[in-house]
């Protein structure tokens, strides 16, 4: 039974097959007509909306396990061997919990995760928002693998021209990044009004196939000083700026061979991420390193 699944999905990484992945924003579903999507190379049909949602494989109408959390519909093609990631910030009542920025990108989801970890592109791709020339330096930061087997980057700092919609002038923003699963990454960022609290953005990347993904962001922002519409607008702007750059990466899959590309000190988090993927034998969406 399990081998049949592997053949159909063309994904051989059991850690991905037996994990939960976001396949839709619940607010995007309606009961009138089925919603088509694809996960790990398997075409899926999502029927219904609200409480009456089910997913079937398009090829044989076989059932797929589902769950609902954080405003998203989740699917698992195999037998889930762990729960959906727990995010404490999503249960804090003084935060807006916002979805609505899902964006399809023609590149491996692993490349999309790596881009999310990267500060060096802020002045060039998100000019005027997350960065601005000539403030291009990436000061050195700390990267480690935690006891929970996550890639954690701390003490990240970057000059940001628009810290918040009401702020005037730039600030040095503090960031922390955490990769908890191969296609799941999150960041913490200093809140401009409450310097002791952090805003939180998770990015759940749906591996559509090896060279296509849908990035589903979840924002957990402190309510002071902003509103949901503004957050959604900002998130859509930022991801739309990334999309054309990512779609021009060659090759589309993420190369895990250290000699495939040229890392610099600013890429420490990416170096750790690629090494961690190699260690976990992730091959889907990757070009594996020669032995």
């Amino acid at each position: 039974m399990e081998t049949a699944v592997i053949e159909r999905s063309a994904c051989a990484d059991s850690v991905l097959l037996n994990d939960w992945h976001v396949v839709a924003d619940l607010s995007a579903l309606n009961s009138e007509r089925p919603f088509e999507t694809r996960l790990l190379g398997t075409d899926l049909l999502i029927h219904g909306a609200g409480d009456r949602v089910r997913i079937e494989r398009k090829c044989d109408s076989g059932p797929v396990q589902i769950s609902k959390k954080y405003g998203f519909l989740w699917a698992c093609l195999g037998d889930p061997d762990r729960d959906i990631l727990h995010i404490p910030e999503a249960f804090e009542t003084d935060r807006f919990i916002v979805t609505g920025g899902s964006i399809a990108v023609g590149v491996s989801g692993l490349r999309a995760v790596e881009n999310f970890l990267d500060m060096g592109h802020f002045p060039f791709v998100h000019t005027g928002w997350l960065g601005e020339e000539p403030h291009t330096e990436v000061p050195s930061y700390k990267v480690e693998i935690t006891d929970q087997d996550e890639v954690l980057a701390t003490q990240c700092r970057f000059f940001q021209p628009v810290a918040s919609p009401t702020a005037s002038g730039g600030i040095m923003a503090n960031y922390e990044y955490k990769v908890s699963r191969p296609y799941t990454v999150a960041l913490y960022k200093t809140n401009p009004v409450h310097p002791d609290r952090m805003d939180y953005i998770a990015l759940f990347v749906q591996p559509v196939d090896e060279e296509h993904c849908i990035a589903h962001p979840l924002l957990c922002y402190l309510k002071d000083n902003t509103n949901e519409a503004e957050l959604r607008w900002f998130m859509q702007l930022i991801f739309a700026q990334d999309k054309p750059i990512l779609e021009n990466q060659l090759p589309k899959r993420l190369p895990l061979d250290p000699r495939a590309e040229t890392p610099i000190r600013a890429d420490a988090s990416s170096v750790f991420y690629r090494r961690w993927l190699r260690h976990h034998n992730i091959t889907y969406g990757a070009i594996t390193a020669p032995q």
Binding site: E114, G120, H121, P123, F124, V125, E133, T136, P244, I245, N248, Q249, L250, P251, P255, A260, E261, T262, P263, I264
Partner: peptide, 27 residues
């Protein structure tokens, strides 16, 4: 070759300033 050595972004979308070619991704 049409890729920046850093992260593989196409240099054909780069900026030709007459003396140098700048990659759009990280400059």
């Amino acid at each position: 070759e049409n890729r920046c050595l850093h992260r593989g972004v196409r240099l054909s979308i780069g900026i030709n300033d007459g003396t140098e070619l700048t990659c759009q991704y990280h400059g």
